[in-house]
Write a protein that binds this DNA or RNA. Structure first.
Lengths: 191, 191
DNA sequence: CGAGCACTTGATCTATGTCAACGGTAGTGG
DNA sequence: CCACTACCGTTGACATAGATCAAGTGCTCG
C-alpha cells in the first residue's frame, strides 16, 4: 500500500489497486465511486487496522466529512478505482440523496454481515456475486483482502477460489493469452 | 415471538422482549429507540429470516420509510424496548440529522462486522460491551439471539457466558434474590 | 541475479459445531 | 393442586471445517 495521493483535485480521481485513498481522520470531502471496490478500515490508536466496510461502484464515500470535516475510516482501493467529487456540480446534498445513501448503507451493512456467516464457500461466493457487474464479470481483490472481508484465512480463500474455478462456477479470464489471476466471469450461478 | 402489535399510535411505544416491532415490507414511519435492543432481519421470499443488523438505545429506526414508505427489514425487540415516533414534534428530518444517522449507521456496521470475526469469546465480549449502558449494566438477549448476531451456536454462547460469569468478567445480577439469567454488570473490563 | 510478493498445496491441529441428555420456569388446562 | 408442554439454558462426548505451519511456484521490479 502506497502513501496517500496528493492530487485531491476537484475532478476525477483514478487509483491503482492497493493504493490509499485517504487515511482515517484526515480532512476531506465526499466522493462518488464510479468504478472499482474500496475497503474501509477502522484504525486504532496503536495503528492496527481492522476491516470495517466496503464500497462498490455507485456508492458515496465519506459523507461523514459533511458533519465532522474528516474521514472516520481509512479507505483503500482494492481494484482499479475511479472517483468523482460528490455532490456533483450544482447538485446539493439534499435530504433525498442523503436518505438514499442511508438506505444503501443499511443494505450494504446487512450484506457485509451475511458475508461473515455460514460456510466458507458461501461467503466467498456471496462476495463474488456482490462484486460482479451486470455482465457477471468480476475483478477480485487479493486473497488476503478477501480473507479480511470474510474473516477467513488467505490459504482457505486460495483453496476455495481454485475449487470454484475447477468446478467452473467461475471461469478465469485470460488477458493477452495470459492467465489473469484476479479476473473471472460467473458460470452457472442462477441461485 | 408474538404477532405484531397493532398500537402504532403517535406516542411512546413499549415492547416486551421477543415481540415483533414491524415485519419486513410493511408500511410505517421512523422511530427513535430510547431504550432496549432491536434486531433487524432480512426476510427472503421463502420466509427465512437472516440476521441483518442491530439497533441500540439512541438509534433511529426505519428511516427508509421516508424514501420507500415501507420498512426494508423485520424488526424485533430483543429486550424490553421503548420507542417514540421520529422526527419528534416540530423538528424535521433535516440534512444534519440525516447525516448523523448515516454516520451512526456506518459506525454500527463496522461494529457488527467486528462482532463476527475473531475468537468466539472476543465476539461475545464485544457484544456485551456494545450493549452495556454507561453504568456497565447489560440485559442480554437470549443465547440464540446472541448466537445469530455473532454467528456462533447457542451452546457455544452458553459455555462462554457461563465462563465469563465464573471468571467474574461479568457478574450476574440477582433480582428479588432470584438469579436473573440475562442481567449482568461488567467486572474488570478496562481493555 | 536476488528480493519481495501473491498465490498454491500438503500435513496436521484445534476451536467450534453437532448431537444428546437434562434442569428450571412459566403457562395452561384439568 | 398436579400434569403437561414449551421454552430457555447448561453440560458432556465426539466430529469436522477451517486454521496453522511449512514448502514451493511464478511474476515483477530493481
Amino acid at each position: 500500500m502506497q502513501p496517500p495521493l496528493t492530487d485531491h483535485s476537484r475532478s476525477t480521481l483514478d487509483l491503482p489497486p492497493g493504493s490509499l485513498l485517504y487515511p482515517a481522520g484526515s480532512l476531506g470531502q465526499p466522493w462518488r465511486l464510479s468504478e472499482g471496490i474500496v475497503r474501509f478500515d477502522s484504525v486504532a490508536k496503536q495503528g492496527e487496522a481492522t476491516f470495517a466496510s466496503l464500497a462498490i461502484a455507485g456508492d458515496i464515500l465519506g459523507c461523514e466529512t459533511l458533519l465532522f470535516g474528516c474521514y472516520t475510516f481509512r479507505a483503500t482501493a482494492l481494484t482499479q478505482c475511479r472517483l468523482t467529487p460528490w455532490p456533483e456540480g450544482a447538485e446539493a446534498a439534499d435530504s433525498t440523496s442523503l436518505l438514499t445513501s442511508l438506505a444503501k448503507a443499511q443494505q450494504r451493512a446487512a450484506e457485509l454481515v451475511a458475508l461473515r456467516g455460514g460456510q466458507a464457500t458461501d461467503r466467498v461466493l456471496g462476495l463474488i456475486r456482490l462484486l460482479a457487474d451486470q455482465a457477471g464479470r468480476v475483478v477480485l481483490p487479493t486473497r488476503q483482502d478477501i480473507a479480511d472481508i470474510t474473516d477467513l484465512r488467505f490459504e482457505t480463500i486460495s483453496r476455495i477460489v481454485k475449487q470454484l474455478e475447477r468446478s467452473e462456477i467461475i471461469r478465469s479470464i485470460r488477458i493477452d493469452g495470459v492467465h489473469a489471476t484476479r479476473s473471472f466471469t460467473l458460470g452457472a450461478t442462477s441461485a
